[in-house]
Nucleic acid binder design. Structure first.
Lengths: 342, 342
DNA sequence: CTGAAAGCGCTTACAG
DNA sequence: CTGAAAGCGCTTACAG
């Protein structure tokens, strides 16, 4: 069996209490005892049972990242980057990160997030929770966490209501910047390949597209707005349809980079020069848009910042700080200095 | 305070033991007691303290992914995908995944992996360990784990020796397939932009390049071999240098995709048509090579498979199965059916 | 079928 | 400064 504190205290010839004191660097132990204990621990290769310690202290120094995703196993590259920065930030504060993914259903029933959260809050394994979800979280689902004052932060989604911490990206502002960039370049016929309208971020990006055109006294044209599904192929199809319009648009704002790439491919296949004949801007900042020909401007999501701040906010909250709501700005990157970048 | 089993047993009017039995679905309890306990638990919103349970049972159902990385916070996209599949596979087996990253140094001293592993094995938090490292792991570092029979698996690296589990990708075989593809297309002047030679996988890819050329009676030319650093820009520079050779190569095998992309960019800027004038093949299967113009063939790393198998091997081992050494085949993807793919 | 008791490995008042 | 004792929340023999 493994070495316990009892073994150490016995070998050192002191009591359990003394051994514990020494190994936790508490003062009030004679140098002589200290040495004996340290020596014994060393000899036996003693390592504390963290489980037992956590049970007593009621602290585990561990937080849980709980990701709700549509298709099991399909955390996207997006999440990969986020996890990286969460992990780094969490480690930095001497916390540990545990992860779990949950799908839409559990045992054939729609997953009850409310109960899932309660389980997490009560099982005493975690001191805080980071929530990531492909579909909207409602206040009622996290209400219990608020009531019990269990630290949590929702990432990448705004949830209104008292006592909720969240951090999201300014999709509206980022889009606005993209559209203004196109307008400033002289474009008036700006189309939008939007995302699915049940997607919160797609909604915001769409709203910003509409508002920014109108603010600039460019009238909206229904035929310039086409809905895609965030996949590359849907961008391609959308572009083909846009090219049938007369006159066809001179600029495209795609709600994400993959659709922008699809649009680029279709445009090139139809003999257009990008960006001379057609400007295309996407959203997300995935790596691939740096390497298309030409590289595609994109509104970059500050994922590193997102993860870092989420971790910081959560741990602050664990330590007694207040809950916060944060919207992170994001900016257009036009790759003017690409060759310094990678 | 939170609700404990004691509270439940009190409310139900039974002993602790009975309550425990009921809530663990053990039989040998009267229906009447069962109902009372269930009812009380429900009313109080009881959730077991997993910490206490784990302490007794000596089982946590949790495994740790320990990643050693050069630059703190720089788990690449590669790891993102791997984590995804690990997480999915681990969840599927009703285990949990905890993660920690460690750098090369700790408190200014080179990190002592041996001790780090012992800590992990002894703290009783984890039943198994997945090791991922940017730099080579030696047998001596994991020897203690072997000796203590603590389940672990090394991912993405071969470590010889008794009692070690690892899973790696067949970099040699994958490269061979890439080179053969180029030879079959008629190329004889095949250059190699290789990776840093202190990198194990770069070594294997280089070795396969050499062997395959020689097997096909193509003599090696030193000036066709240039070392890069796995970054895009180094592929670009390498390509520029290769274009100065007379005759210049008609095909490039780059040791990774980023350098392949850099090579592509340099080639295009120098007026070459790819693939008509120059064939370029990379390694890794990152998403970006699908969207360059033209898309670049690449040897795809089966990351999903890698993560899944790693998790399976580890959990098998935890459950008493044997340790295994696995090399995963990987194959060249030439994107013949790209438009069905994304 | 049921309850009193011991114990998992540790920490922390409390006397001395 | 030190040790005996209680206790964290639970599970599991053991009597009855």
């Amino acid at each position: 069996m493994s070495v316990t504190l009892k073994d150490v205290s016995k070998l050192a010839g002191v009591s359990l209490a003394t051994a514990s004191l020494v190994l936790n660097n508490q003062k009030g132990v004679s140098e002589k005892s200290r040495l004996k204990v340290l020596d014994a621990a060393q000899k036996l290769g003693y390592r504390p049972n963290i489980l037992a310690r956590s049970l007593i202290k009621g602290k585990t120094n561990t937080v849980l990242l709980c990701a709700f995703i549509k298709e099991q196993g399909k955390l996207s590259a997006f999440y990969g980057e986020l996890i990286n920065s969460l992990l780094t930030a969490v480690s930095y504060q001497e916390f540990y990160l545990q992860m779990v993914v949950k799908g839409e259903f559990y045992n054939g029933h729609p997953l009850d997030k409310r109960t899932a959260f309660l389980d997490i809050a009560h099982n005493r394994l975690f001191e805080g929770l980071i929530i990531l979800s492909h579909w909207p979280i409602s206040y009622s689902e996290v209400g219990d966490l608020v009531k019990e004052n269990f630290p949590f932060v929702i990432v990448n989604q705004k949830v209104d209501g008292e006592g909720v911490s969240y951090i999201d990206i300014d999709h509206y502002g980022g889009t606005k910047e993209a559209i203004n960039y196109l307008i400033k370049k002289g474009h008036r016929r700006i189309a939008h390949i939007r995302g699915p309208m049940d997607h919160l971020h797609a909604q915001e990006r769409y709203r910003a597209y509409v508002d920014t055109l109108l603010e600039n006294e460019i009238s909206l044209k229904k035929e310039y707005i086409i809905e895609g599904n965030f996949r590359r192929l849907s961008g391609r199809t959308a572009m083909e349809r846009l090219l049938e319009k007369k006159p066809y648009p001179t600029a495209i704002y795609a709600a994400n980079d993959k659709m922008a790439i699809g649009a680029l491919q279709a445009a090139k296949e139809n003999g257009l020069n990008v960006p001379q004949d057609l400007d295309i801007v996407g959203f997300d900042g995935i790596e691939a848009v740096k390497y298309t020909d030409p590289p595609l401007p994109t509104v970059e999501q500050p994922l590193e910042e997102l993860g870092k701040l989420a971790a910081t906010m959560l741990i602050e909250n664990i330590k007694g700080g207040d809950r916060r709501k944060v919207i992170l700005p994001c900016r257009l990157d036009t790759w003017d200095n690409l060759n310094q970048k990678t």
